[in-house]
């Protein structure tokens, strides 16, 4: 199995620790603070990522997974909580210190069509940050960029081409190369394959896997596609409406899903086999508004196993097996 090699490895140190992170966006322009409403995009999220591992973050759109990724990069300011990266608290770093840290954490965006500047050549796109952060001496610049391009499966003569000349898969490779060129320790992949075709998707996933084996990069892999996340992750975190509902290793979450939302998500995936007719748990309705999330358990409005207690008391995020945490009242009765 793909991940066997990694599990055999000794438990390495924690690379990123997130404690009780909150990110609220104000809505409207109320002058008085007490009338102000907030979109609770990320609400009290805590987790750790170990060095050289991959954390998969799954959830529907609007559940705050992208905001979480961006807040870790401090592309958004932090409302509350702390993000510890290698002894630094990212939330409290000054401008200069943050700039020094930037090359260590990189991001790959979802849409390769809009995240590449149409007026810059591929070489400029990949090389801009390399020059800015002085990763290599200026005379080695071009050779270094071409080396990075090669390791991402791009031909060196693409150096002077513009993004519009490439297909979606190749654009995503450029995005990967751009992130990789800064020799990062952690790459936040924000739905890197959702905009791609199946066969191209497989190529990009394999590329990400190869790079991890080669350079020991840590990934935080954000996606709504459970099958992709299962393939690439060591640990999986399921988010719903800004909070984490389940967190565990890949085997725990997929072999023994505990939260009803995880059950529903997994049964919703269409299986490419016409003879298997799985019993689907079809969730009713849409995800509620994050401005006034439901009281008690946030999932109770759509849950098939909803009880009385769910409507009033917020379930605690508790550990039920080693490393397998769930926030659900179903398991807290005994």
């Amino acid at each position: 199995m793909a991940k066997n090699k990694k599990t055999e490895k000794k438990k390495t140190k924690d690379l990123l620790v997130v404690n009780n992170l909150k990110k609220y966006f104000p809505v409207g322009s109320a002058w008085l603070e007490k009338n102000k409403q907030y979109v609770q995009a990320v609400d009290d999220v805590s987790f750790t990522i170990k060095e050289g591992e991959t954390l998969g973050v799954v959830g529907e759109s609007g559940c705050g997974k992208t905001t979480l990724g961006r807040t870790i990069l401090r592309l958004h300011s932090i409302t509350d909580g702390e993000i510890l990266y290698d002894k630094y608290d990212i939330g409290k770093l000054g401008k200069k210190a943050l700039r020094k840290l930037r090359p260590k954490i990189q991001i790959i965006f979802q849409d390769p069509y809009s995240s590449l500047s149409p007026r810059m050549t591929v070489g400029e796109i990949i090389g801009e940050a390399v020059r800015e952060h002085k990763i290599v001496p200026p005379e080695e610049h071009q050779d270094y960029i071409m080396g990075v391009m090669k390791s991402c499966g791009l031909q060196p003569y693409y150096y002077r081409r513009y993004p519009h000349e490439f297909s979606g898969g190749q654009r995503q490779r450029i995005c990967v190369a751009r992130a990789l060129a800064l020799k990062p320790d952690l790459i936040i992949c924000d739905e890197p394959v959702s905009a791609l075709d199946v066969s191209i998707q497989a190529q990009v996933i394999n590329l990400l896997n190869d790079l991890q084996n080669k350079f020991g990069i840590t990934y935080m892999f954000i996606s709504h596609d459970l099958s992709v996340v299962e393939y690439i992750s060591d640990e999986i975190m399921v988010m719903y409406l800004g909070s984490v509902v389940e967190h565990g290793t890949r085997e725990q979450v997929f072999k023994n899903p505990m939260h009803p939302y995880t059950h529903a998500l997994m049964s919703a995936i269409p299986i490419p086999d016409p003879e298997v007719k799985s019993k689907k748990i079809i969730l009713k309705g849409d995800i509620p508004s994050p401005i006034n999330p439901p009281k008690g358990c946030k999932f109770h409005t759509r849950c098939s196993k909803c009880m009385e207690i769910c409507k009033t008391v917020t379930p605690k995020f508790k550990e039920y097996e080693e490393g397998h945490k769930v926030a659900c009242h179903l398991y807290s009765q005994d």
């Binding site: 793909a2 497989a202 996933i205 394999n206 896997n209 099958s227 299986i271």
Partner: peptide, 17 residues
Amino acid sequence: LQKSIPALNLDSDTLYT
């Protein structure tokens, strides 16, 4: 095409491309 889908519970080293 069929082999390149990362289907659930598929235990293989690399995805077929």
